[in-house]
Computed example of a mutant assay.
Amino acid sequence: MLKVLIVILMFAVVVSLFSGLFFLLKDEGKTQRVLNSLIVRVSLSALLIAVILLALWHGDLTLNPTP
């Protein structure tokens, strides 16, 4: 379940990235939608990092010691 949440958050970050690109090309900087997309993307990225760190701290995720 945790890995599914991480994948969903990553997908949401990518969607936000491309929506920002779309708004940048369509609006040509005349609206605040690009800024809003950036705020959403940064917030989702911070949430993703927090979920990963929390999962590592609780032991739900483990780092691979041998590559």
Rank of each mutant, 00 (worst) to 15 (best):
Q32C: 03
W57N: 04
G29N: 05
V51R: 08
R41D: 05
L17C: 14
L25K: 13
S16Y: 01
Q32N: 11
T66M: 10
D27G: 02
G29W: 05
S19D: 14
T31M: 11
F11P: 00
L24K: 13
V51C: 08
S16T: 04
T62S: 06
I6Q: 06
G20Q: 11
D60Y: 14
L21I: 07
L25F: 13
R41Y: 11
I49K: 04
A46W: 09
V14Y: 12
I8D: 12
V14W: 10
F22K: 12
F23I: 03
T62G: 00
V40N: 04
I6V: 10
V42S: 10
V34N: 09
V15Q: 14
V4D: 12
S37L: 00
V15F: 15
M10N: 14
L5F: 11
K3Y: 12
S19N: 15
L35K: 11
E28P: 00
L63H: 02
F11Y: 00
L24F: 10
A12E: 14
F22L: 15
A50H: 10
L38T: 05
L56R: 03
L17W: 13
L48R: 03
N64R: 09
L61Q: 08
D60N: 08
A55N: 05
S37K: 02
L53G: 00
F18V: 10
Q32V: 06
K3A: 14
V4C: 03
F18P: 03
G59Q: 03
V40Y: 05
G20W: 10
P65K: 03
F18I: 04
V15C: 14
T62C: 00
E28F: 04
S16K: 05
